[in-house]
Design a protein around this nucleic acid. Sequence first.
DNA 1: TCAACCTGGATGATGTGTCAACTATTCCCG
DNA 2: CGGGAATAGTTGACACATCATCCAGGTTGA
Lengths: 188, 188
Amino acid sequence: MMCQLFPYAEQVTRWLEPEQQRAWRAYVRMQGELNAHLSRQMSADSEISMADFAVLVQLTDTPDERVRVLELARSLHWEKSRISHHLARMEKRGLVRREICRSDGRGSFVVLTELGRSAIEEAAPAHAETVRALVFDQLSDDEVDALREISEKVFTRLTTGECASVIARCDADDPMEVVSEEGGCTEA
Amino acid sequence: MMCQLFPYAEQVTRWLEPEQQRAWRAYVRMQGELNAHLSRQMSADSEISMADFAVLVQLTDTPDERVRVLELARSLHWEKSRISHHLARMEKRGLVRREICRSDGRGSFVVLTELGRSAIEEAAPAHAETVRALVFDQLSDDEVDALREISEKVFTRLTTGECASVIARCDADDPMEVVSEEGGCTEA
DNA sequence: TCAACCTGGATGATGTGTCAACTATTCCCG
DNA sequence: CGGGAATAGTTGACACATCATCCAGGTTGA
């Protein structure tokens, strides 16, 4: 059970415990299927992808419906090149529009267009229904709580200390050390 | 990140409860960061990607380290074109090799090469360490149990009934196939 | 036996994510 | 003021996933 497949572990590699093994496998499979399903549902029921949706949500969340590009990147935890490429594609499809930023000549705003607004308004209800049907209808209140707790713990681990080093590229407002610190996160 | 509250919901859409909302946001963020981190760690510490790793694990799990292409697709829950493209890239890099299948002229076997073997042997320990450090070191035994339970429930929902319709493309046989305990390390 | 169909798998187009390099502006400090 | 560093954002190359389509080899049945 303990990974007899890799007998070469002369080194004291601490493999996962059997229960951890099972939990991990279950999680990985679930997460993969769930992502795939949500993506498929979204692009079947509407004209946008999950990524588009995430961007549009951020825009509708903003009073002005206009947001600086890097701010978008930070709130989505995306890399700046990713947001840049993605916005270019969304702009080509008319979902958003760029506007120059007068107060800072380097930057630009992203603005929600009417098409973008109607796209997300069309997509959101079905998405919420799907999430509820696939996830929350399966879980007790305690399990929902546990899911949040677990997710927060892992997320915290991921975004604090050495682990945050790479993320720090776009997470600049985080005062954490940008120490190179590779070997990354394999515990101290 | 997704599905904030949309004030325009006149329609009878059942949005998520506030606690569900919070759990969902926490999960989505965690899952995104975790995937990103695991991928980065894997390609930093070794010559392979998470996808390569998943393929190689399947191959090492097989007695004679040769497997039919579509069988691979099914066990990974990948589409056949995805596995085909991916194998082409892996073959180009020397990680696997194809062999003709004498019993069925259409098909072919995928075989683990020496390079492939050493690649996974090099990658596996660090990956296991990372998963342990990022996930399981943060969780109590009860939480590990809850994670498995939750994942299994959602996964079951995803792979039974109408939901399975699309997946069924490659999942033709066997509706449930819940983790057969072949102990394949921390595969993806 | 032969035509219709099914299956295993490859291919090309397109959309997406990542990394590294780049440009242009602004900031900081002497 | 002026010059280097930081910042905002783009671009190009490449890896990857998905979809539709194609094709060769098997299977079925009249």
